[in-house]
Design a protein around this nucleic acid. Structure first.
Lengths: 241, 241
DNA sequence: AGCCGCCTCTAACCTGGGTTACCCTCGCCC
DNA sequence: GGGCGAGGGTAACCCAGGTTAGAGGCGGCT
């Protein structure tokens, strides 16, 4: 209902009132993490699931010489599965890009949830598949889109993803990333990120000020980005416009 | 026992003889797919799992203007989960890069397998997580590694992955990809792929002839690639040397 | 044998994006 | 108020990698 995870899942599968209640009940106490600090600590219970309730986080990996690549952005409603860390002991980290509020679903509660409600199970399965699809689309961007297409694509994707959790107001949404963060998502330097931002503004496609992004011409931005929202697999609303 | 999937899973978890038998029994009849044709057809049973027994395949996505990015390489022992296609109806495809032999585990048989054997369940879970880690590392390469580092990294990764299914002989292994395919994996042009290949040879790091790659100086290649095999999460052998 | 198509390899040229080195603004702290 | 640090914005220069255009090699087909 008022939590972004429920909102998102509702886009995949129709959930009953009972599902909403169970889901809300499964969420443990919330925790707040300051910007620029890592979220999942070593030794966290790997069977629990973290849910971002507010703020943006990033999954990233840093090379030995300092180069950083943000491999995924985690927005409100996104889950991160610390059991990745069972395996991936320190092969990557998740950092809070803004102040982040998160809840935790303990492992048993999560299994119980899935066992109790087939729709919820289905919804979580879709969640997982879509996360993977977003990841693949990121590889396509990094490998085959130019800098400006890449940024345009990211802005289109964020628009859709934020809209599904009710965080976009028409064609405008919060964009709390610094240009350095953005560069680390897009696989560019911060200088070039600034240039591309300049170009998008000059084309009158967007404005970005005081941490809010406005898309002036969604159709043209999508065309430039070669953006096809199919990979996000949303059912109805929010995909168009 | 002699199938590459069993070999790979054995690296994650110790499997009993019974596990091996069950696994072998679950594999349905094999199918052969010609090079350059798509593997998963529309309308395939989405609950089944395909296992590559021989040959190389690639998960790719093609942009409207023809640019192609191969997002993952599927080697013998790798699984592909056509239930991705439940969601991702035609947002990407899997193609045989060589002639491919594959087996199919029907959905119910797969569930049965996991229910019957906790080690197998654990092994498949790891398989999934590692696949995701490989994907992330690919993004790091595309975003933050230079062309030569990227190719070196790919060659190191393939070495480890093929070794775990017994397809590398010391420092040499089959490399059936054309330079065009390689370019589509690495997010470059074929011309540049050729140049980089030239440079790696000139540095005396590798030879590649008649579809076999030999790594002459694994330590130096890894250093150049900033390759850290941690993300592949293999337990013993095959990682070092 | 001769042709054709796919693949490798190379050279010449050009450009997108990296590098370096600044300045400016704004918010925070003393 | 003044100092300081983080972030945004630019300019000048340069190089990694894209583009275009061909030249050989090799295997399969007729």
């Amino acid at each position: 209902m008022d939590n972004p995870l429920a909102r998102k899942l509702e886009h995949f599968v129709r959930l009953s009132d009972a599902d909403h209640l169970w889901l809300a009940a499964a969420l443990g106490p919330t925790r707040t993490v300051a910007a620029r600090t890592d979220i999942v600590e070593e030794g966290d219970d790997p069977t629990a699931v973290f849910v971002i309730l507010d703020g943006w986080a990033g999954r990233y990996r840093q090379l030995a010489d300092g180069r950083r690549q943000i491999v995924a952005l985690l927005l409100p409603g996104d889950c991160c599965d610390p059991h990745v860390f069972l395996l991936d002991r320190r092969d990557h980290a998740i950092t809070a890009l803004t102040t982040v509020t998160l809840a935790r679903i303990p492992g048993p509660a999560f299994l119980d949830l899935e066992a109790r409600s087939p729709p919820l199970q289905e919804a979580f399965r879709r969640e997982t598949l879509i996360t993977a699809a977003v990841q693949r689309e990121g590889s396509v961007s990094l490998g085959r889109r130019s800098a400006i297409e890449r940024m345009a694509h990211l802005f289109c994707e964020l628009h859709v993803r934020l809209a599904t959790v009710g965080l976009a107001a028409g064609n405008t949404y919060p964009m709390p990333l610094t240009q350095v963060d953005l560069a680390d998502v897009l696989g560019q330097t911060a200088v070039h990120t600034n240039r591309v931002l300049h170009d998008l503004r000059a084309e009158n496609l967007i404005t970005l000020e005081r941490r809010r992004l406005t898309i002036h011409d969604p159709a043209r931005l999508r065309e430039l980005a070669l953006f096809d929202p199919a990979y996000l697999h949303l059912t109805e609303h929010a995909v168009d416009r």
